[in-house]
Design a binder for these strands. Structure first.
Length: 652
RNA sequence: GCCGCAGUAGCUCAGUGGUAGAGCGCACCCUUGGUAAGGGUGAGGUCGGGAGUUCAAUCCUCCCCUGCGGCACCA
């Protein structure tokens, strides 16, 4: 475009172009447009790349100048500069602390430090205060491009071994950018704000300190990671902190206690003692899943818990996962050696045993074998987390034995089943991730071609909107993962669908084909809820304990207002129970206010209050959870209404 | 598993080198009250487990267990 080599043409978002000298910086461009823009500018986008105001532009380009109004760029820069400002604050407070890396993450940033003493909550306060001082200095940001040798020497001289290692990991042809504000400096690819004063001093907060391995490697040093959050203004920060409070209120461990759903105790870490209320949800959900599976042509089986190591050796689990299995040794009196068994960590090898009983014909395929399989895995102690990560759990597991030609139809059918179930359980949408062949894999390329094509074609019958994750498939086959988003925007990976060409081989599963010869079936591993334990945790948090009526463990409390109403209360409870509703009477010597409060806190969806007026009219006053107003209906009406509501979605 | 923090009544939490306290809940009594806590009385604790220091440990030290927040892991 430009006639003169020293001239370049910059095109603005409105389509206008202007000529500038090559090497001009976005800061200068902004100044050329207006003084106020020059002041407000924070960064630019140049040919699609997020660009520091100080970086020169050498060629024709599209350019957009950003201000704090551009959320994505503003937040990125604010959080990024917060990371540096925090590192500077830490080194000003404790000069011997070594710095490492500090990336931007959702809502904020973290920075990893190497320091002998742990950071305390008081330290965080001091760092925060120091950060505010630094912001108030309004130090201009400079970036410099350095030679590697100079940079390495610089960091060696300053005893910053982590930085030296980082530089050594940067490919040789990339420039090393040094970022300075004031006298303090950090290695960083940028971009950055114009000066530290552009970071809002009242819209960030240091949240926590935690250990983190250097470069994510558990064999390397444990560093101290400080997490912070930052926003454009105080109000956004406040909203975020409120959201955290909201999430804490939904914590399934807290609600589990309050609603008397389950408990855990130290004699059985990572395992659940389900109380009547929790077990009611569990079995209601399981009954529902069992009906769905039947409707989709699955047969249900049940297989042993304690299985000889021989089977795990054959399946390959003994080699790979022995550390994570519960081992059960039995010392039999006349045996030469102890019998070594493992609690099953998964169901698939057992399902192949069921499959292998008797000869299978191609006419038997696809054979969809389901089990609510109770599994135990010795998860690392630090991984345990309420119901979300446990050592004893039950999967809604199934394996579909089929031919390669049946993969596509089975995949499509599975996605249909899964989306119906998620919808029934209150989750309207989900995302699909499609993981294809990894570098190290079993099976021929032809089989992989076929399997990947089949999976992809099957997804496309449902949606074109899926995320491709190349190379992330299991070594035995490609897979689909299903993620759903909960009521407060968190994502949970739940369902999975994996094609497996290896296990049928290892455990010698066969079928007789039309040609009369033996063939190898493909195994499709699939789960929709994953584990019941985890899914119930997610369900509780998604609904903040206010489960849909059909799943609510306590559906109705019929509460008397005065004792003279007690006989009618019991009559109403009996009528509701007869209609299959989980109803209980509350005829305690308490005021109606007290009863309403207690059952509201207990998340009971419907309270029926009964005083003398109701007794005379044979009516009930209905109060729904979360609603203030009440409604008077007849006994017959409420029974009909609630039994309709209590019908599981697949039976409605 | 690793780093840090924590563990006191059923729950939430206060507290002290001389073997403990509140609120809620629970039991009993009074109260029969119309939609988010009526009043009174009372019971309830091996202060996570073990060892050590000390005349004396719930408190200080060490080890272990469990939990919490991350990291690593998640067939």
């Amino acid at each position: 475009m430009s006639l003169d080599q020293s001239q370049i043409s910059l095109t603005f978002p409105d389509g206008n172009a202007r000529a500038y000298a090559a090497g001009i910086t976005p800061a200068e461009v902004a100044a050329d447009i207006s003084n106020s823009l020059a002041k407000k500018a924070i960064s630019a986008t140049v040919n699609g790349a997020h660009w520091d105001l100080q970086w020169p532009i050498q060629t024709d380009a599209s350019i957009a100048i950003h201000t704090l109004k551009d959320d994505a760029q503003a937040l990125e820069l604010i959080r990024h500069d917060c990371a540096h400002i925090m590192a500077r604050a830490v080194q000003e407070l404790w000069p011997d602390v070594k710095v490492t890396i500090g990336p931007v993450i959702d809502n904020g940033w973290y920075y990893d430090f190497d320091r002998a003493e742990p950071f305390t909550p008081e330290d965080l306060g001091a760092i925060e205060k120091k950060m505010k001082d630094i912001i108030n200095l309004r130090d201009a940001v400079r970036t410099e491009v350095w030679d590697r040798d100079v940079a390495v020497k610089y960091y060696e001289d300053r005893n910053e071994p982590y930085k030296v290692e980082l530089i050594e990991a940067i490919p040789g042809d990339e420039p090393l950018r040094m970022y300075w504000h004031g006298h303090w400096q950090d290695l960083c690819r940028g971009p950055h704000l114009q000066h530290t004063g552009q970071v809002p001093a009242d819209a960030f907060k240091l949240m926590s300190v935690a250990g983190a391995y250097w470069r994510g490697d558990s064999n390397r040093a444990m560093l101290q990671r400080i997490y912070g959050v930052a926003f454009k203004n105080k109000e956004d920060l406040r909203k975020y902190l409120n959201m955290l409070e909201e999430a804490a209120k939904r914590d399934h461990r807290k609600l589990g206690r309050e609603m008397d759903l389950f408990h855990m105790q130290e004699e059985a870490p990572g395992q659940v003692f389900w109380h009547p209320n929790g077990w009611t949800i569990y079995t209601t959900l399981q009954d529902y899943m069992r009906r769905r599976q039947r409707a989709y042509g699955y047969v249900e089986v049940n297989t042993p818990q304690v299985v000889d190591r021989k089977l795990w050796e054959a399946s390959g689990h003994w080699d790979k996962y022995q550390e994570n299995m519960f081992i059960v040794e039995v010392d039999e009196e006349h045996a030469r050696e102890k019998a070594i068994n493992a609690l099953k960590p998964m169901n698939c090898p057992c399902h192949v045993q069921v499959y292998n009983q008797g000869l299978k014909s191609y006419r038997d395929l696809p054979l969809r074998m389901a089990e609510f399989g109770a599994c135990n895995r010795y998860e690392p102690s630090g991984a345990l987390h309420g119901l979300m990560r446990v050592r004893g759990f039950t999967q809604d597991d199934a394996h579909i034995f089929c031919t390669e030609d049946q993969i596509e139809a089975e995949t499509a059918k599975f996605i249909e089943m899964l989306s119906g179930i998620y919808k029934d359980l209150g989750f309207e949408s989900f995302d699909i991730k499609f993981s294809t062949r990894p570098d190290v894999r079993a099976g021929s390329d032809e089989v992989w071609d076929k399997a990947e094509a089949a999976l992809e074609a099957a997804i496309r019958t449902v949606t074109d909107d899926f995320e491709l994750d190349p190379g992330e498939g299991a070594f035995y086959g490609p897979k689909l993962d299903f993620k759903l988003t909960d009521a407060i925007g968190r994502e949970w990976q739940l369902g999975t669908f994996q094609a497996d060409f290896v296990l049928p081989e290892r455990l010698d599963a066969t079928y007789i084909g039309e040609d009369g010869a033996k063939h190898r079936p493909v195994m499709l591993h699939r789960a929709i809820l994953g584990s019941f334990e985890r899914f119930l945790g997610i369900l509780i948090e998604n609904f903040a304990g206010k489960l849909p009526f059909w799943l609510a463990p306590r559906q109705v409390v019929v509460a008397s207002i005065i004792s003279d109403a007690d006989p009618f209360v019991h009559e109403v409870v009996a009528a509701l129970q007869k209609a299959g509703i989980r109803a209980e009477a509350d005829t305690r010597n308490e005021k109606i206010n007290y009863k309403v409060r207690e059952h509201s806190v207990g998340k009971v969806p419907v309270i029926l209050a009964i005083g003398m007026k109701e007794v005379e009219d044979r009516t009930v006053t209905v109060r729904r959870l979360g609603e203030k107003q009440t409604k008077i209906v007849t006994l017959e009406e409420i029974v009909a209404q609630l039994s309709a509501e209590g019908t599981p979605p697949d039976l409605a």
